[in-house]
Computed example of a mutant assay.
Amino acid sequence: MVQKPTLAAVTHQPLARWIAYLNAVITFKTPQGMRLTNQDLTHQGHTVRATICHVGPEPADGTMLYLHGGAFMIGDLRMYRHLVARLGQAARQRAYFLHYDRAPEYPFPAALDQATTAYLALCTDPAAGPISLVGDSAGGNLVFALLHRICTRDLPRPAAVAAMSPVVDLRMRAKSLTTNRRTDHLVPTSWARRGCTAYMGSADPMNPEVSPVLGQFDGAPPCLIQADETEMLADDSRAMAAALQAQGVQVDLQMSKGLIHVWHLNVGRSPEADASVAEIGRFLRGVTSRETV
Rank of each mutant, 00 (worst) to 15 (best):
4 K>L: 00
12 H>N: 15
12 H>Y: 14
18 W>M: 12
25 V>G: 07
28 F>I: 09
34 M>L: 15
35 R>M: 11
40 D>A: 14
40 D>M: 02
42 T>P: 07
47 T>Y: 04
55 V>R: 07
58 E>M: 08
64 M>K: 01
67 L>I: 13
69 G>M: 10
77 L>H: 01
82 H>V: 02
87 L>I: 15
88 G>L: 07
99 H>I: 00
108 F>C: 09
127 A>C: 07
130 P>R: 07
130 P>W: 06
130 P>M: 11
132 S>M: 01
133 L>G: 06
137 S>E: 11
138 A>G: 10
142 L>I: 09
142 L>F: 03
147 L>C: 04
148 H>E: 12
150 I>Y: 06
152 T>A: 09
154 D>I: 05
158 P>G: 03
164 M>G: 03
168 V>M: 03
168 V>C: 13
169 D>L: 06
175 K>D: 15
176 S>T: 05
190 S>L: 06
193 R>S: 09
197 T>H: 11
200 M>W: 05
203 A>N: 10
217 F>R: 05
218 D>F: 01
218 D>E: 13
221 P>F: 09
229 E>T: 15
242 A>P: 05
245 Q>G: 08
246 A>K: 13
248 G>S: 09
251 V>L: 10
251 V>M: 10
254 Q>Y: 06
256 S>K: 10
256 S>V: 12
258 G>R: 08
262 V>R: 02
272 E>G: 00
274 D>M: 11
285 R>N: 11
286 G>W: 10
